[in-house]
Nucleic acid binder design. Structure first.
Lengths: 247, 247
DNA sequence: TCAAAAGTGTTGTACCTACACCCATGA
DNA sequence: TCATGGGTGTAGGTACAACACTTTTGA
């Protein structure tokens, strides 16, 4: 029986997902082929180990601090982002994942709305990356993001978390775009509308969104108290050949 | 910003599930109404906090020890059970979940086959309980078991973990009994058979189980390398009104 | 030959995909 | 008036629940 580990340090990290409209970073021009995509913010490590590499935002657990509070706090301190959805993902604790000392990281994942990212810290050491095109990250963070992506895609299928990407009210087309972007599929607008409407997950606001160059779409609001993340009653209408089971 | 927590101790605990044939504990006689049920081993706490209460088996993380290794080791030490399926469940770390010191517990859940429980330690301080009828446990362990039960029931629906409850080969009726016991539903034998057979998750062994008082059922073996826990291609045929989404 | 569970056949229904078509607006 | 996406209608197909029925053994 090994001696007890007393020198372990506990940290929290967070994988933050946001939807960015079809723009390439650094303000490049938009083209017609630009599609909305999934972005995650990373912070540059300023000290060893992994100095100079990009890493998930995070930090040490505070004394007497709950795990989810630590995740929210370190996230806000490093990136200025305050997510509306935050959930524990997994705890990574392999003995050699950090070279010098034993670090166990409780990793969270978060979803933010576009508005919530505007308060983000403007710092060259904080940068947003396309979730499907990341550089080599510090530690085991590439694997962590991969795992979080899988969880996001899975959970989208049986819960209401898609709402967390959107504002107070939204159109069904906007909701559909969340699914299409995250799952990387094309959904039939007619069938998606019917499925979502029949689920009872949305209620009409009576308003419409104007300013488009076509028929103004109705605005909806999530039904029930804003319990994003809770069970959702509808199955996403995705192409049958993609409806395989998650791991 | 709170000072960093350096006095935190890391522990692992495990919720172990096993199927017990329709017997009540303490060797009570079997009646026709006895059904297979879900059982969990617990250990009695021999010191404060929570002395005398029943608790999940577990222990401290060893120096240089991976989290899953710690879970398997402490499990074996306290109960003598070596599960064939072990997966991380959740990390519980509320500051006040243990009175004296700050303890963060990485909780695992495990499935064992009947044979694997025979090596279990025979000790008055280790006892098996019906998963749906537990006493008041130490710490937040009642909530943890509840959470694990939900995860087990959910995961049964989209993976192959049911096999982990069974031996090398089994009949389709035995597999169905796993689903019926864990999900607490009745499944149509004919439809269950077709669904499972069509999924390709099982292959016939060519053998049959004899000794029954009826037509001898075919024996099957899981298809593919024993990757229990990996994605399963079939949906469990359960009653529609029960096929609600998980959380 | 009887009981009991294994295993097969069949039918109705609910849902879902695909796609045609109408609607309401901005330009 | 045209282009564009919002929104509705509908036919065909697939999957599955329900249940009748046949099969094969032990007693």
């Amino acid at each position: 029986m090994p001696r007890h580990e007393r020198d372990v340090r506990l940290a929290t990290s967070t994988v933050i997902f946001a939807l960015e409209p079809g723009v390439t970073p650094e303000g490049a021009e938009r083209s017609a082929s630009d599609r909305t995509s999934l972005w995650i913010p990373l912070v540059r490590r300023l000290r060893e180990p992994g100095e100079g590499r990009w890493a998930l935002p995070g930090g040490w657990l505070g004394a007497g601090e709950a795990l989810d509070r630590a995740a929210a706090r370190t996230l806000e301190e490093t990136t200025g982002v305050t997510p509306r959805y935050l959930e524990q993902l997994y705890t990574f604790g392999d003995p050699d994942r950090s070279p010098d000392e034993r670090v166990v990281s409780v990793v969270y994942w978060a979803l933010v709305r576009p508005e919530e990212t505007t308060g983000a810290i403007d710092d060259p050491n904080v940068r947003w990356f396309d979730a499907d095109d990341l550089p080599d990250l510090a530690f085991d963070h590439n694997a962590i993001v991969e795992y979080a992506l899988g969880r996001l895609r899975t959970k989208l299928g049986y819960s209401q978390i898609a709402h967390a990407f959107l504002g107070e009210t939204f159109t069904i087309a906007e909701l559909r775009e969340v699914y299409e972007t995250v799952l990387r599929v094309h959904l039939d607008p007619a069938n998606f509308r019917r499925t979502v409407e029949a689920s009872g997950a949305l209620v009409e606001t009576g308003e419409v969104r104007t300013g488009t160059r076509h028929r103004p779409p109705k605005l909806y609001r999530p039904a029930g108290p804003t319990d994003v993340g809770s069970a959702g009653p509808f199955r996403v209408p995705i192409a049958p050949h993609l409806r395989k089971s998650p791991s």
